[in-house]
Structures are given as structure tokens and as C-alpha cells.
Design a protein around this nucleic acid. Structure first.
Length: 925
RNA sequence: GUGGGGGUGGCAGAGCCUGGUCAAAUGCGCUAGCUUGAGGGGCUAGUGACUUAGGUCUUCGAGGGUUCGAAUCCCUUCCCCCACACCA
């Protein structure tokens, strides 16, 4: 089988037949989509998982008679594409190399991609080709880009709705910032693509007794202010006094730049650390007098460069005191009671770990341990919040200090120093007048939760994540100074940010192909109000038709994405839908899936283990890739892509193909015998359970059943059947696996030249999903075969045990006597040994076998569980063995004798006694 | 730290909700035999330990408990992964 040729043939056919262009009709509809891609790179097989899952579902539903709409667009909003184009324009070596080595794009081509639009068009074309090659059943007429003017009008309308609802706010906001570029930095703007992490720190102000200035100490542990005995400055650093907020603060000189974006800083004077030493500050909570000491461990570039000394709870503080022989001069103050420690945990741990000095490496280890322990188990034993846990006290004290203006909230970059690609050192900037969407709004949250309670979430375990995120979400910045996308109407200097313009875009798919026919300026408030909300009168005839189309497709039935979007996009999707749309148009289902690993490892540019999807298709064929990325794991977990898996699927498919050819060549005929009955029972059983498994997204299990298990059954059937009859099998199978492997399925179907299920439809893709023929599901037949196979296994075990491989001459088989079956059913009802025995003896026909009863009941008790299942009748077992004797005889190359007499009557009576209901006895000569 | 998800045989990965048929599906790997001109591929069997009659013993992160019975239920504990906001 030439997979590539088959792929090409059917992709062309689908396109030619417009098989997936969905228009309103009388049919019931299903509207689903998967997160639209961001075209700044070619897609890899990891992307393929979400889209394939979506497509399998779409194809399944289409075969179940739904009018399915599966559209696709491109999300180009934001800064990465801009940044990438700019870097390519600068001939950035790192980017050129990634393009060349990982994406396979020549430097010559790269040179043409220096404009954002060129980049977008290049990659979106690439992605679209890949999706078509994968056979995704997408209605491409509805494609749009998120910077299209028509879409801009839509997003503007959406934001007007948010504003009307009172959800658009303005305020200040900390942002990672490059002072050289004078712009916000994201991960793609930093050297090494490091994601900037902002951390909130409390800076406590201690008034200087002598001069009224304030010593600004940054701390992660404001609750320890009660235990401050002194302040620390680095003796080798310079300190400056700055004016901010009308006050004078001392901070390290190196701290000024990182804080410049947050405090309106005016440097008043500079001083050597020595000038501060010997002065005294006042504790804002206890009014204690705190001397200022010198310590080497203080880092002038971290926080404010001034540190509170809490020797009772901070190992470094204690060590610094000890190092300077100041231990006698201060009295340690306990703030927290800590499990497993006495009054002064820091002192204790330093002594226990034998930390030599503040410069000892072990000091850090001790600090980590104490901080963790105190945060976890510490209970305040001093001050206003005595008795409270450390964590809650920390929060309350910080809040109250800030409220009393005795402390400031400052932000630092947790992973500093962080360099912008331009070379600048990143800082945190407090952006004033930042625009937000207020996801903190209580009423809105309630509505979002209401929607969540009605929506179907797959996989189900993720509901907790949604709930948590809805609760936790607060104001979210929704604009940026730069980026592609939609300009922010209420402040034209701003662009709407990427996760805010992609929350209800599915609604736009429903109408995008019509909207394109109109001029952007026609898509005004009245237009969208009418089309999307049914408000007012139709502004034009066209609008009326568009409204009808929207009404047909909405609500949105199923949203698909990878699991990483649960915490942002998918929750915004809920919020925005409940804000903008009528309740009857709220979404119905969300499905998220795990990622794809490559040989067990995460795919990444730096590892160079990214497999571009188009290359993979070329190598294995689309259907093998489709199958590989969804079959390996449950929806919720990550799956692994590797060569053996892909090849295993490929070889089975090929084998099926060859078998199909043979079947076609051989023709068909003859009466069904047991082997045929067994095989078709298995097939129809699978056909019967397939629908519920598709609907429950049990894709891993389904693929297991439909490909691997079915294949094994075929193998066994070929061995058992005198004259295999596979035509009906292929007629079913090709359709059962069609959602997974549409190309091969179409090809098989065409080769079969059959009309069943397809009727007037020309394509499998729009055929009926085959209903199982339940009459052919033959439980008894399957169980008899199972009985035969387990007997075969027993024989095999014995032959091996007796070291008689290939040498057994005669195999005698015995079926359990009737009295055993009766006794077994007694035991099944009465699981207590004694009572079961009594019950058995009460029956005259069993009493006759009293000698064997004890052993029998014991054996039955050993696996009580299996008693629940009704065993095959003796006759059935006998029939299975008799009909299977020839098969067993071939398997073991020995004469097989099935005994019909009662156990005691036959030769090998001792062995025959071993027979149990459900298990034949074996004697080997 | 907060929230979520996990720890199963050489590996991947089911089973756990609804305890017994679980030495634990399936796939890969490995071993042996057959097949093929070799290779690739295919087929058959084996793959916890012991065992010349279908048996026994020990296993599902660790420890404890409930139960006639625990991979499955409860408690304690250790470890791993993911998300945490302006980033698509």
C-alpha cells in the first residue's frame, strides 16, 4: 500500500466534492472547533493531537447524521510574530539557525520573511497544507486571520459589550520591562527565551531615630518584623537616599534602577554604608530600638539592599551576629512556635548543622529548611496575630503595614538578572492606566460557574481546575502598547492583547464567509447586535441571512484544545460567552487533551527533537500519524510518539490491506461454521460498543479495540477458519475506523466496491456509521471458544512442565461432572465453608459425592469472585472441546481424546477428577 | 506556597470509581524456534521466582488499618509532574 498516494487521492476527492463545507440545513447540527493556531512556526506532531482528536469526533458525528461544522482560522494577535519578523530582518543568527535546522527553511527564504504579514502568510499556508494532508474535515471557506479588518470589527463589538457590562477597568499594573527598549518584555523578548517572573515583596520602612529618614528593608517574611533585633547593610556597598511618595528612603544604590519603574525615585544623596552603621532605627510594630550593623551576606542588588535582622528565625541573621561577635549585644526575639524546635529555631539549626559562618554553603541549606518549616508549621506567638498560622499572619501583617504606610509593596524579577535581547537589564515597571478585564467581578464569576455547571467537561477530572481558575481569576490586563490584532477602541494607543481577543471567536466562524462579502465598515454595532444577539431590526437583507446562519450554528457544541489552555483561554471563553451571549447560546462542551512526547521527552527547539507534521506524514502516511498521536494514551495524559509505535500501526494497516486484496480476489461463499460465528460475534460486539466510546472520548480504548484487538482476532480467525470469510468484516471495519483513518478507509471501501451503509453517498466520510447486527453477537459461541483456548493454555503449561514439548502422544480431556456444577452453585450462594458443606450434604445427589466435596468447595472458595459468573453448561463445554479437538490436535501434534463418560468411569480417573466447572481436566500420555 | 494530576512488571501503559475471575490487558523490548539468499520483515511460543501434573511463594512508591479477601477502600509518609496572569 502506498499511503502517500492514497492520502493524496482522497484529499483531492474531498476537496473536489466539497465534502466538508457545512451549510445550514434541516439536519441537526454540530458545531465544534479546535484552538486556532498561531502561525509563527510550522506545526509538529504535537499540534496534531488536538486537531486529530477534534477531527475524529467531527467525522464520527458526521457519520452519525449530524451536519458538522469544523472551521479553522489563524490567531496572529500579539507580539511574537512582530518580534520574529524584526529579528529575521536583523539577520539574527539564532533565529536563522532555528529556521534552517529545525523548520527546514533556507536562509534565502528566511530573508523574505522580514515583514509580519509575509511571516504569517508563509506559516499559515504551511499549516493549512499540513491540516489538509492530515485529512481534517475542515470547512476552509470560513478561514480568517485575527488581524483581518472584519474580525477587528467583531472584537471591537465584543469589547463594547464588556464595557457596557462594566467589566473594563483601568489601573496600575506591574509588568516586566526593558528600560532600553522602553517596552514590556515577554519570554520571546529575553535572551534564552526566559519567561520573566514577577514576585511580590514587602518593603518595610524603619524610621531612623537620628535623622527621620526611613530604612527600606525588603522581605518575604513580614511576619518576622516582630522579631527584628537590628538592621543589616552591606559594608562594601553604596547607599542612597531617595525621595518617593513624599518620603525619604534609604536603599542600596544598586537597588535604584530595578525600583525606578515602581517608585517615583529622586536620588537625594549618596552615602557609604559606614555612614549608616551605628545609627538606630525604630521597629514600626514594637517601637523597639534597632541598631544598624554590617553583614557581608546582604546583596545590594536584591530587593532594597537593606535587610531586617531576625536572628531567632533566620539562620543568616544569627550567623552574621555570631560572626561579628554581637551575639551578646542583642536579645533574640521569638516570633513563631515551630514544630520540632525550641525558642530560637535559627540558632538551633545552625548549631545542629554546624554552619561555620554566613559565607558557609550550608547556611543556604539551613535557611531553606527553616523557612519551609516555619511557613508550614509555624504559629505566631507574639503580636496582634498571636495564635495564627504563619501563612495567614504573614498576609495580614503585610496588608496592615501597607495600610498604615509603614511598608510598600514592591515587585522584583524572581529570575533576575534577566536580559532583554537588546542587551538591557529587565526591571519591573509599574504601568499606570493599564486596561483590565475585571474577571474578579463576583456576579460575573457566578454566571461563569453557572455555565460551568451545565457544560460537559472532558476529561471530567479537570472540572476542579476550571472552578479553581474561575475563583482565583482577578483583573487581567487586556491591552499592550504593541502587537498585531485589534486596536483598543477606548484608548487608541493600545492594542488588544492575544488572550482577550480570542474568547468568542467561534461565533465569528459561523458568519465569517458571509462577513467577508461585506465592507468592514458595514460590520457596525447594529449589524452585530442584530446578527449575534437578535436585537433590533435587520439592517440589510444580507444581515437577515447571516442572522439565520448564526442561529443555526450557535450554540457552540464542542471546544477542543490541549490541556494548557484550561487555566486561561478556556476560562475566558466561558466568562466572555456568559457576558456577551444569551443563555441559550452558552457553550455545551469543552474537551482538552494531553501533549505528545517524542521518545518519552518533551519536544523542544533546544533538544532538536521536533518532528514537523508534514515530514511525518510523508514518512508514514497521514492515517498512521493520526492514529499514532491519539491511540497511545487517555485523553488526559500525555502520549508518546516513537518509531516502534508508528511502525506497529503501519504494519498492521498494511497487513489489513493485503488481506483485503486476498479477500477481493478470493470471492466468497460457503456456510458459516463456528469459527465464522465466533469472529463475527466479536466484530459486531465491537461495532456495538463503538458509539458510546466515541462519545465518551475513550479514544485510546477504542483504538485498542478497533485496531490491535481486532487485528489479533483476525489472526486467530485465519487460524481457526476452514474458509475465512472476510468480506463482511471489511465492509464494517472500514467504516468503524473511518473517523481514525479516513484515507485508508475510503480506499478500502472503494476497493470493495460495496454500497452497504454508503447508499447514495459517494464517500465513506459522509456515509452512515455502521450499526451492529446484534443477532450475530453470540455470547455462547464466544465463551465456548474462550473455554477451548483456556484449555489449550492448560495443556501447553502441562506439556512444558512435563518437559514433553512436541512429544505428547495422546491428550485426554475431561469435563466436570454434573454434581460438581450443582455443588458450585450452592457455594456461590453460601460463601461460608461450613454452611456450604452442610447445604451440599443436605442434597441426596450431592451426598453421594461426599468424599470429593471438601476439595471441591475449597477450590471454589479460592476464587470466590469467579462464582459470580454463571459457568458454561457441561454440554457446552463438551461441545467446545469436541469441535475444537482437531484444532488442539494440530496445535500439539498429538491425538486428542475428549471423554464423554463420567469422571470415575474413565481411564485416567485420577486426572479426570481435576475437572471443574469452567475448567477441563487434562491427562497427557 | 496554592491548586490539580500521578507513582503498577525491562520500558510505555491499562486496571483503582463499582474490592474477589489480577502474576495483572495491550504494545514495545528481550529470549528461543520457524520462515526469508543475508538484512529488514513475518509467524509461533516464552518473558516475577520456584516447580516433571495444572501447584506454591513474593509483587502494584513506603508504612499502617478495614475486610474472609486490597493494585483497588481508609489513614500516615516519601517522591514525581503540571498550572499560577498580561504569555501565545
Amino acid at each position: 500500500m502506498d499511503f502517500n498516494a492514497i492520502d493524496e487521492k482522497w484529499n483531492a476527492r474531498w476537496q473536489q466534492e466539497k465534502a466538508f463545507e457545512a451549510n445550514p440545513s434541516k439536519q441537526k447540527k454540530f458545531f465544534l472547533s479546535a484552538a486556532f493556531p498561531y502561525p509563527n512556526s510550522p506545526q509538529h506532531i504535537g499540534h496534531g493531537r488536538t486537531y486529530t482528536t477534534t477531527d475524529i469526533y467531527a467525522r464520527y458525528l458526521r457519520m452519525r447524521g449530524f451536519n458538522v461544522l469544523f472551521p479553522m482560522g489563524f490567531h496572529v494577535t500579539g507580539t511574537p510574530i512582530l518580534a520574529m519578523a524584526k529579528r529575521l530582518g536583523q539577520k539574527d543568527e539564532e533565529y536563522l539557525r532555528i529556521f534552517e535546522e529545525i523548520y527546514g527553511i533556507s536562509r534565502k527564504t528566511s530573508a523574505t520573511l522580514t515583514e509580519p504579514k509575509a511571516l504569517v502568510s508563509y506559516f499559515s499556508r504551511e499549516i493549512e497544507h499540513g491540516m489538509k494532508e492530515m485529512g481534517y474535515s475542515i470547512d476552509w471557506r470560513r478561514k480568517f486571520y485575527s488581524y483581518d479588518e472584519h474580525f477587528n470589527r467583531f472584537v471591537e463589538w465584543q469589547f463594547r459589550k464588556l464595557k457596557e457590562a462594566g467589566y473594563i477597568k483601568q489601573g496600575s499594573h506591574p509588568v516586566p520591562w526593558c528600560p532600553l527598549d522602553n517596552n514590556a518584555v515577554g519570554a520571546h523578548d529575553t535572551r534564552g527565551d526566559v519567561d520573566p517572573q514577577i514576585e511580590e515583596v514587602t518593603a518595610v520602612a524603619f524610621e531612623l531615630e537620628e535623622e527621620g529618614g526611613l530604612m527600606l528593608c525588603s522581605t518575604y517574611r513580614p511576619e518576622t518584623v516582630y522579631g527584628v533585633t537590628n538592621l543589616w547593610v552591606n559594608p562594601n556597598a553604596l547607599y542612597v537616599q531617595i525621595e518617593a511618595d513624599g518620603k525619604k528612603f534609604w536603599v542600596a544604590k544598586e537597588a535604584v534602577a530595578p525600583l525606578a519603574g515602581q517608585l517615583g525615585i529622586k536620588v537625594q544623596k549618596t552615602a557609604d554604608a559606614k555612614e549608616l552603621l551605628g545609627k538606630n532605627a525604630i521597629n514600626p510594630l514594637t517601637n523597639a530600638r534597632l541598631p544598624i550593623f554590617a553583614a557581608e551576606f546582604v546583596k545590594p542588588n536584591a530587593g532594597t539592599g537593606i535587610v531586617m535582622g531576625v536572628p531567632a528565625h533566620a539562620p543568616l541573621d544569627y550567623l552574621a551576629l555570631r560572626d561579628a561577635n554581637l551575639e551578646g549585644k542583642v536579645k533574640l526575639i521569638q516570633v513563631l512556635k515551630v514544630e520540632g524546635f525550641g525558642e530560637f529555631p535559627a540558632k538551633e539549626i545552625v548549631e545542629r548543622m554546624k554552619v561555620a559562618s554566613q559565607l558557609d554553603e550550608k547556611a543556604e541549606e539551613a535557611t531553606k529548611e527553616i523557612y519551609k518549616k516555619e511557613a508550614h508549621t509555624g504559629v505566631m506567638c507574639i503580636g496582634e496575630f498571636a495564635g495564627e498560622g504563619c501563612a495567614s499572619a504573614r498576609e495580614k501583617i503585610a496588608k496592615s503595614l501597607v495600610a498604615k504606610k509603614r511598608a510598600l509593596k514592591i515587585y522584583v524579577l524572581a529570575n533576575s538578572p534577566l536580559f532583554c535581547r537588546c542587551g538591557g537589564v529587565c526591571i519591573v515597571n509599574m504601568v499606570q492606566n493599564q486596561w483590565f478585564i475585571d474577571y474578579g467581578n463576583k456576579g460575573w464569576k457566578e454566571k461563569a460557574k453557572e455555565c460551568l455547571s451545565k457544560i460537559k467537561i472532558m476529561p471530567r477530572q479537570t472540572i476542579a481546575d476550571y472552578l479553581y481558575t474561575i475563583d482565583w481569576l482577578n483583573e487581567r490586563a487586556c491591552t499592550r502598547a504593541a502587537g498585531l490584532g485589534t486596536r483598543f477602541e477606548f484608548d487608541k494607543t493600545q492594542m488588544i492583547e492575544a488572550l482577550s481577543d480570542s474568547t468568542i471567536y467561534m461565533a465569528f466562524y459561523a458568519i465569517s464567509h458571509h462577513a467577508k462579502e461585506l465592507k468592514p465598515q458595514e460590520l457596525d454595532e447594529g449589524f452585530f447586535d442584530y446578527v449575534l444577539l437578535g436585537k433590533g431590526n435587520a439592517p440589510t437583507e444580507a444581515a437577515k441571512k447571516i442572522r439565520e446562519e448564526f442561529e443555526y450554528w450557535y450554540p457552540f457544541d464542542s471546544s477542543h484544545s490541549a490541556k494548557d489552555l484550561v487555566h486561561n483561554h478556556l476560562v475566558f471563553f466561558l466568562f466572555n460567552h456568559v457576558c456577551v451571549f444569551e443563555k441559550r447560546h452558552w457553550p455545551r462542551q469543552i474537551v482538552t487533551n494531553g501533549f505528545v512526547l517524542m521518545d518519552g521527552k518533551k519536544m523542544s527547539k533546544s533538544m532538536g527533537n521536533i518532528v514537523p507534521i508534514r515530514a511525518a506524514i510523508k514518512k508514514y502516511g497521514a492515517d498512521v500519524i493520526r492514529f499514532s498521536v491519539v491511540a497511545g494514551a487517555d485523553l488526559s495524559s500525555d502520549t508518546d510518539f516513537n518509531k516502534p509505535v508508528a511502525e506497529g500501526i503501519s504494519s498492521r494497516l498494511r497487513a489489513m490491506g493485503e488481506l483485503l486484496e486476498k479477500t477481493i480476489a478470493a470471492g466468497e461463499g460457503g456456510k458459516y461454521d463456528d469459527a465464522d460465528k465466533w469472529f463475527y460475534s466479536r466484530l459486531h460486539r465491537r461495532a456495538k460498543m463503538a458509539p458510546s466510546m466515541f462519545e465518551a472520548f475513550q479514544i485510546r480504548e477504542l483504538s485498542q479495540e478497533l485496531l490491535f484487538d481486532m487485528f489479533n482476532d483476525v489472526q486467530h480467525y485465519l487460524k481457526r477458519a476452514k474458509q475465512p470469510k472476510l468480506r463482511e468484516f471489511f465492509e464494517y471495519w472500514a467504516l468503524l475506523v473511518a473517523p481514525f483513518m479516513p484515507h485508508v478507509s475510503e480506499e478500502f471501501w472503494e476497493r470493495l466496491g460495496a454500497k452497504k451503509f454508503v447508499q447514495d453517498a459517494k464517500l465513506v466520510s459522509v456515509a452512515q456509521f455502521p450499526a451492529a447486527d446484534e443477532k450475530k453477537i453470540d455470547e455462547g459461541m464466544e465463551r465456548r471458544e474462550q473455554f477451548l483456548l483456556s484449555t489449550r493454555e492448560d495443556i501447553g503449561t502441562l506439556v512444558r512442565l512435563l518437559k514433553k514439548e512436541g512429544q505428547a502422544k495422546k491428550i485426554h480431556l475431561f469435563v466436570a461432572d454434573e454434581w460438581k456444577r450443582e455443588a458450585r452453585s450452592v457455594v456461590a450462594a453460601e460463601k461460608d465453608f461450613g454452611k456450604a458443606m452442610k447445604a451440599c450434604l443436605a442434597k441426596p445427589e450431592l451426598k453421594a459425592h461426599a468424599a470429593g466435596l471438601k476439595k471441591l468447595i475449597e477450590t471454589c472458595m479460592k476464587d470466590v469472585g469467579s462464582l459470580k459468573m454463571e459457568p458454561l453448561a457441561g454440554k457446552q463445554e463438551l461441545q467446545a472441546l469436541q469441535k475444537g479437538a482437531e484444532f488442539l490436535s494440530k496445535e500439539f501434534n498429538a491425538q486428542v481424546i475428549v471423554q464423554m463418560e463420567e469422571e470415575a468411569q474413565v481411564a485416567h480417573a485420577q486426572r479426570a477428577k481435576n475437572a471443574m466447572p469452567g475448567r477441563a481436566a487434562v491427562a497427557i500420555e
